[in-house]
Amino acid sequence: MAQIITPLTVVDIEQETQAFDSNKNIPLSFFNDHVVRVGVMTEPFYWHYHPNSDETFLVTEGILLIDLEDRTVELKPGQLFTIPANVNHRTRPLGGRSVNLTFELAGMETVRNTELT
């Protein structure tokens, strides 16, 4: 299982994620009042929003789909996308697996939106 990486340490994302074959969201590093997480996605995450934080995704493996209320954004490795606070969204991998880094407020709240399916 991955651990929180201490400052001044090189992080090998591939090594940190190779053992996971199901959804995982692992904090890697904290900076100021934010956190960097690595997310391994093998199935869709539910519709939700974050009232107190933007959320930025950077894909490192596979393709990540981000469903918004009016469109779907497709991110490939090396592509980055930011979702502002209070915007409903859900994430899901295209194919079997995607891996992404997320950058967000460490105390970010997640509110599930059961009105969207």
Rank of each mutant, 00 (worst) to 15 (best):
P44R: 00
H34T: 04
Q3D: 12
L101F: 06
V111W: 09
L80H: 09
P51M: 01
V38N: 03
V11L: 05
A85F: 06
H34D: 11
N25S: 14
R92P: 07
A106T: 08
G62I: 05
W47A: 10
N88G: 07
F57M: 05
V87G: 06
T110E: 10
L58A: 07
F81Q: 02
V36H: 10
G62E: 06
V111M: 08
I26F: 02
E104Q: 01
W47I: 10
V36R: 13
A85D: 01
S53Q: 02
E104S: 00
T56V: 14
S29L: 15
Q18V: 13
D12N: 14
E109F: 04
G95A: 04
G96N: 12
N88C: 13
L28Y: 04
D67Q: 11
E115M: 04
D70L: 01
L8P: 03
E61H: 06
T42Y: 06
I83S: 04
E14P: 01
M1C: 07
L28S: 00
I66L: 15
T91I: 13
P93N: 00
F45D: 07
Q3T: 12
T9M: 07
A85M: 06
M41Y: 09
H89L: 05
I4P: 05
E43F: 02
E14T: 14
V73N: 03
G96H: 08
G39R: 11
E104H: 05
E69F: 04
Y46D: 13
W47K: 08
E16N: 00
F31D: 08
R71L: 09
T6I: 09
K24R: 15
R71C: 12
L68D: 09
F81Y: 15
T42D: 00
L94P: 05
P77Q: 02
G96Q: 12
T114E: 14
Q79S: 00
A19I: 03
P84K: 13
N52E: 04
E61A: 01
E69A: 13
Q15G: 11
I4G: 01
A2R: 13
P27D: 03
H34V: 01
T60Q: 05
